[in-house]
Amino acid sequence: MPDNKRDIISKLQKDILLWEGFKPPQTDSADTFGLGPIESAFPNGVFPLGALHELICPTAEQAAATSGFITGILGKLIKQDGVCLWIGSARKLFPSSLSAFNIEPDRMIFIDLKRERDMLWVTEEALKCESLTAVIAELQDINIAQSRRLQLAVESSKVTGFIMRTDLNKAKTSTCVARWRVSPISSETEDGLPGVGFPRWQVELLKVRNGSPGVWKMEWAGRSFVSLDEKVIAHEALERRAG
């Protein structure tokens, strides 16, 4: 009875998740981010909120792509009157660009600091503030002790934190639930018209706690995410039917 065994295994897996503190989604109405296949890489198939995410972006191009990806997620997360905090040292983020990702730029408060130590302090204080929707911090480096402090802050306040890390050390351990890398890939316009199309990214989930890492291709289609892998399949299916 292989089916039976599979059932048992999946039930056991769920039990383990429950013991580890992952609650299954309450109802089906749980918000999705339109991330499609990426969401299923997480335990219970839910994008973890109220947790720390770590994004590696050593180059300016990747930083641009990463901030686009984060703001796309925030656009869904930020409700009617949510507020986000963006902490950085040499901030280049252009507030006007946020409106292309469904965020009103005046709902974002920027904290510009010089020293890494100050940034960590502000990040921790901000993560403790329950009235914020999310905190994004551009840190150069974060060690395990510091990330544990941030994790403790997040656990009680349920604020979602995104750490944009500029150092390359991928193997570094931290308490973040997921480690991402977002890089830009070439865009395509509809019907091959000249010009630049919607932004496209290669989203790599390098590490997920209790989930399965993977690589996906995503496009920000004006107002929401579209998974390119799905799009390709759908396109092929269409062609097959037509043929």
Binding site: G82, V83, I111, E125, S131, T133
Partner: peptide, 22 residues
């Protein structure tokens, strides 16, 4: 209040804290 948003008291507190230290 627990309303959230820019007028929220806790946010004001946080920003006051940051501006006093930094």
């Amino acid at each position: 209040t627990t309303s959230g948003g820019l007028e929220d008291g806790r946010l004001t507190e946080l920003l006051d804290k940051i501006s006093n230290k930094m």
